[in-house]
Amino acid sequence: MSAGRDDDAQGAGAPGDAARPKVSSVLFLCGMNAIRSPIAEALARSLLPPTVYIASAGVRHGERDPFVDAVLEERGLSLGEREPQRYEDLEDGFFDLIVTMAPEAHHAALDATGTASVQVEFWPMPDPSVVTGSRDQILDAYRDLLGRIEQRIRQRFEA
């Protein structure tokens, strides 16, 4: 494994890590860029300085999820007209940090970056789309995910 990679989910995001270089560009990567990574992108844009370039993508094609829009709107955030995009379709593939949020995304990032000088961190996150029940129960699962992602972003970037 090359230097700069962090496969340990527990170690990723530990605040106060003096050896961790400053990040100027972050990619959040999940399965379909429909739930986890767009939530992370929207939150990061609201929490990190505007000088940090932030993007998100998926390893497969996905469709926009209306529950994501609903929970982001509760926080005063929006994805605008943004549609899910695939990792391989990104115009700029260079990032200081790639945060993966699903096992398939983590493996894809490691395969794609090879020996490149990029940090890859795995932040495993639950998939709220598997939750069944009432609309409120489903929204609660999405809110829980949003809270988990926000906590990781604040820990990792001390935001």
Rank of each mutant, 00 (worst) to 15 (best):
A105W: 01
I138L: 07
Q155A: 11
A40M: 04
V118G: 00
F95K: 00
A116V: 08
A9C: 13
E91I: 08
V59D: 00
P126A: 12
R152A: 04
L48M: 09
T100E: 02
Y87E: 06
L43K: 02
S134M: 06
M1T: 12
S129K: 07
E81D: 14
A14I: 15
E41M: 10
Y87P: 00
S2R: 15
E83L: 14
P49W: 09
L146G: 02
E88R: 14
Q151N: 09
P21R: 12
E104L: 10
R143I: 03
E88G: 13
T132W: 10
V71K: 00
P49H: 12
F95G: 01
D96L: 06
E150D: 08
A70K: 10
D111A: 15
R135I: 11
R143Y: 07
E41D: 13
T115C: 10
E81V: 12
D140W: 03
D65L: 06
P50C: 07
A57Q: 05
R82E: 14
A57W: 03
G4N: 09
I54K: 01
E121V: 08
G58Y: 03
Q155N: 11
D6K: 14
L77F: 05
G16M: 05
A109P: 03
S56P: 02
D127Q: 05
A19H: 14
P124G: 07
A12W: 15
E74C: 07
A57C: 09
Y87I: 03
E104M: 12
V131H: 08
A70H: 11
A102C: 11
D111R: 14
A112W: 03
L110P: 02
V120M: 01
G16I: 04
L139W: 07
A141S: 09
E81T: 14
G114D: 11
Q119V: 10
L79K: 03
V120P: 01
V52H: 04
